[in-house]
Design a protein around this nucleic acid. Structure first.
Lengths: 340, 340
DNA sequence: TTGAAAGCGCTAACAA
DNA sequence: TTGTTAGCGCTTTCAA
């Protein structure tokens, strides 16, 4: 590895001078600066951030902890975060807690030991409190987003969940709906609580009832098993004419269940939700696709990489994995009966 | 900051002993181990990865460089990569090049100076070659995915693009389509080239023509301006009965353009594409939503965080930003004319 | 304008 | 089983 000393030696200066050139600090004659720069280019020198972080006690790394990387709300948020970080000379590390307190805790541990300069976090819920307290105890600055956690004072970026819930519900009422149900995230998540509150508020202001069974509380994250939603709908004496979903994921899942039952949206049940669907909102994506095994791409890629790192000394032959795509036929293709 | 020496002092042992306890190396009596562990808990000690990386010459960090973080193909891939990395005791850092060579180059610089142990990269295209050569020159192991780059030998995880292009096209042919157009990514991207090849192959095997204007080449990434696609369609004497899209983003964009023109999919034009749409594939998401300003959440969050880091010494009052949601009314809500 | 020495927090190698 | 020494690559402080 080329170090600052290699440069110094070859340029006939001290390491300190090289350091000054790299960081543009102190006074240096143009001549030495040019000489040092030339040698750096020649040797392909890249400063070692690790060493620098150790002495400077800062990493210039920020961490973004989100709860669902497959949700376009969070990926869009991530792009914003990345832009802001880059613009300010920070790098951004991502973590995905999957709405799990356990994973969140692991990430907090990682964050502490990596000595990142700050954290932008969407907490899994109110029980995230100890994790935030840990960050606070270690003096790691953090900003909450999307969700507040009672018991901790800090900076926070929120959506107006109560108002939003109110307006979504009012919109349905304005369209003539009287029996409106709600599916929502866990009540241990502040945004879910507020959205529910907004919903109830709107119903109340319009003198509409809300049966106990009309509100279903689950998790904001995607589930592999939709039977909970099935059971919720089954338990109702009749389907509501409209449903408010606490987020986009829940809306899609409800839609899936309704579709399997042959219940048409919006003809039989209207549906509204929090959070948009990114690039997938405006379209009717019943696309026929050659589905590539995206997850496998990532998984096997990392496995190969780790193997390569482990066997760094004995260069094995290069490997090439080709994964077949699966053709998924959906209704974006029309059968043409007559030729042309 | 609590260091290994603070622990050592309080536990009446040497720093080395503490190190051994942390890493579970060497032989240590149960008694000292217990004592050291107790002190570590007491002082809330967290090992400093930065220092460790410096001496070990490895960071246990892998880097995943993708070209479009809003594409479900890549987020799904990222989940796979994260799982594989975590399972093997590595952390994963993400970067998003946005199909831009410039951003890619910046990330390569970051990767080199951060001394990550390895990189999993979807290159922006063939001109990524110098970036890969730079990684190679610095002996940073890397694995390519999704795309190959002529001129560099390395590990690679690929989809079978040619075969996939062929099969998608054949599917359309089997359904009676004779005039099939293709919209594709840049020909400087290997997967785009192969997909086109598969498409042409299928046409040829079926003795079908392919007019020059029927193939449109653009970028795989999402564009803010769809006028290029408009112009492509306009230039054709008539619309084809079917279109093959080189990836999911292109398919959605074509669909958007067709929809604006009142061209029905699949009734008037059939559409197929590479890559699935993640959770958004099976649904008809014409959802009415309270769209939150996802990008702003991330952007402002990071800004607040950086400000907080800068003003670490003078604690300013905590800030709270509340962003309003925008109600976007789409056709998931039905107007009820009669009450109830 | 330049350089020498010390140290950031940790671990490998060796010694006791 | 435990401790001492040296050094990873860099920057800060002080001296020249």
């Amino acid at each position: 590895m080329v170090t600052i000393y290699d440069i110094a030696e070859k340029a006939n200066v001290s390491a300190m001078t090289v350091s000054r050139v790299i960081n543009n600090t102190g006074k240096i004659s143009d001549k030495t600066r040019a000489k040092v720069k030339r040698v750096m280019e020649e040797l392909n020198y890249v400063p070692n951030q690790t060493a620098r972080s150790l002495v400077l006690q800062q990493t210039r790394i920020l961490f973004l902890l989100i709860t669902d990387i497959t949700n376009p709300f969070y990926t869009t948020l991530a792009r914003g975060a990345e832009d802001a970080a880059t613009k300010n000379g920070f790098r951004l590390l991502f973590g995905n807690s999957d709405e799990s307190l356990e994973k969140e805790n692991e990430y907090v541990q990682t964050i502490l030991s990596a000595r990142v300069d700050g954290v932008l976090v969407a907490p899994a819920g109110d029980p995230s409190l100890p994790h935030l307290e840990k960050l606070r105890a270690h003096k790691v600055p953090f900003v909450l987003m999307d969700r507040e956690v009672p018991g901790i004072e800090c900076d926070v970026v929120l959506g107006d969940s109560k108002e939003g819930g109110h307006r979504l519900t009012q919109l349905l009422i304005d369209r003539g709906h009287r029996r409106i149900a709600m599916i929502n995230g866990s009540s241990s998540v502040s945004s879910a609580r507020l959205r529910l509150q907004g919903y109830r508020e709107a119903l109340k202001l319009n003198d509409l009832p809300c049966a106990d069974g009309d509100v279903y509380e689950t998790s904001f994250g995607p589930r592999s098993d939709l039977s909970g939603i099935e059971a919720w709908l089954d338990a109702m004496p009749s389907l509501p004419t409209a449903i408010v979903a606490g987020n986009n994921v829940l809306a899609l899942e409800v839609m899936s269940v309704l579709r399997n039952r042959g219940v048409a949206v919006p003809d039989e049940v209207s549906l509204v939700c929090f959070d948009d669907l990114g690039p997938y909102a405006e379209f009717d994506p019943f696309l026929t696709v050659a589905a590539q095994q995206a997850y496998q791409f990532g998984y096997m890629g990392i496995q190969m990489l780790i193997e390569r790192i482990r066997e760094k000394e004995q260069p094995l032959p290069w490997k090439k994995i080709v994964l077949p795509a699966e053709l998924i036929v959906r209704r974006s293709v029309k059968e043409l009966t007559s030729t042309q």
